[in-house]
Design a binder for these strands. Structure first.
Lengths: 137, 137
DNA sequence: GTGCTTGCAAATCGTTTGCAATAGC
DNA sequence: GCTATTGCAAACGATTTGCAAGCAC
């Protein structure tokens, strides 16, 4: 599917900037920060403003087209993959990895039953990634 | 146990400020922010500096005496309860609630087996809390 | 006295806001 | 032409840094 139509499917009106940002999110599964996206797209869209990157990602999150990750206290990261999966932050290289999610259906039901209406689930793990662990030896 | 000894048990040298901050964390299970703690202790310790609150909480986290929560992108929150439990952020009132944690032993083993050395687990849920849900009706 | 702790002021940095310029229908 | 989008510059606010003063052993 073209990114143009992908955005439309989430109710987001496409524009050059929005398509470029969503393209970046979908092609780079690196959980980029605002800064990452801005720097990466500056070359192609020289007039791009960081404000637009902020506005656009806020819009994506509101429409469910992207996910905001708060795993790293230093800055917010974004994920174009909105399916349920866990994240691992390496404390050494600060890379964020995808991991399979724990099954949550029963838990969500249980929480909803107790009056907590769960809208978002975030499973975060922190530690040392395989690649950094290998370097340490 | 006295907070003085509690800090010592984590290898943290006690001081008036450190005891006051840990006391606050242990007595107020509200997952306060730096600002919350600072404002609450200003009365008792008029010379208290926000820098000291920052330094102290960083120290606590490094020694495993407190947990840093990044569930709320607006600011970092702290928890004196370092046992494994989940957190729920209400999107309306912004309160953070404790919830029982999903069992994680098997998953951690599995991740460790894949080379991801897990040191921290964070289970975050976001939505509407029972009290805010009741108000909406 | 030495080393750690505290606290002020300034700097920094990510993010938001106000508003004017621009683009799209 | 009207409305939504973009982008600049300034404002803001949380956090960090540099450094001098204070405290404890």
């Amino acid at each position: 599917m073209k990114t143009y139509d992908y955005l439309l499917s989430y109710g987001v009106k496409p524009s050059v900037q929005r398509i470029a940002i969503m393209d970046y999110l979908l092609e780079h599964r690196t959980h980029p920060s605002i800064e990452d996206i801005y720097l990466a797209l500056c070359d192609d869209i020289p007039t791009l403003s960081k404000t637009t990157v902020y506005n656009t990602l806020k819009l994506f999150v509101e429409h469910g087209a992207a996910q905001m990750l708060t795993i790293d206290e230093r800055n917010v990261n974004y994920d174009g993959d909105v399916s349920l999966h866990a994240h691992f932050l390496c404390k050494k290289c600060n890379k964020i990895y995808d991991l399979p999610a724990a099954q949550e259906e029963e838990r969500m039901e249980q929480f909803n039953m107790n009056g907590f209406a769960v809208q978002e689930i975030h499973q975060y793990y922190k530690g040392i990634c395989p690649s950094c662990a290998a370097e340490e030896e």
